[in-house]
Computed example of a mutant assay.
Amino acid sequence: MHPRNRWFIVCSLLYAVIGGGFGAVQAIAPGLLPGAPARAHGHIMLLGFVAMMIYGVALHTLPRFANRPLYSERLANLQLWAANIGLVLLVVGWLGYWKAVLFTGGTIAWAAMAVFAYNILRSVSARPAEEEGG
């Protein structure tokens, strides 16, 4: 497995623990966290835990199912950074109610999703190597 895909999975599991912590804090001491912690929790769990796990597993398996290499390792590496930076900015934006930070984080996180979609579509929609000859 490519180290980047492992990083997606490691990040996913870290976000699961962090997101669970946010949920526990909200249950035990509501109002302790500033801003909109429920929205921060939701983004940590969905974009952090769920999406990062999907990214890591899909980048490894889907090209193999299509019998092709991943279209672009560089795009996947960019996606790893963009997904994490975007999520952190979203969480900070929700906790501080800073609309500019929210917008920036959301835009970066969305761009990571778009890069993922493009990279996977280019990887799986190409004809397998043994079919290209004729």
Rank of each mutant, 00 (worst) to 15 (best):
T104W: 02
R74K: 15
F103G: 02
L75V: 12
A83E: 02
L80I: 05
L87W: 03
V91T: 11
G86A: 12
A76K: 02
G105A: 02
L95P: 10
G105K: 08
F65Y: 14
S72F: 04
I85S: 07
R64H: 08
G105F: 06
W94P: 00
A100W: 12
I85A: 15
Y97G: 04
G96I: 01
V101D: 01
A76Y: 04
A83L: 06
L70D: 03
S72W: 06
A66M: 07
L80E: 03
G86M: 10
L75H: 05
F103Q: 08
L70H: 08
A66H: 07
L87G: 03
A66E: 13
F103E: 00
Y71C: 03
L95V: 11
A100R: 15
Y71E: 01
G86Y: 03
P69I: 02
N84K: 05
Y97M: 12
A76D: 12
A100K: 14
L90W: 05
F103Y: 04
F65R: 13
L75E: 04
W81P: 01
V101H: 03
L78Q: 12
F65Q: 08
L75W: 13
K99W: 10
A83Q: 07
R68G: 00
G86V: 08
G106H: 06
W98C: 02
L78F: 10
W94Q: 10
L75I: 12
G96M: 11
W81D: 00
N77F: 02
F65P: 05
N77K: 15
S72A: 08
G96A: 09
V88G: 04
P69E: 12
K99F: 14
L89H: 11
W94F: 15
A76L: 06
E73R: 14
A100L: 14
Y97D: 02
R74P: 04
P69A: 13
Q79A: 04
V88K: 06
W94H: 13
F65H: 04
Y71A: 15
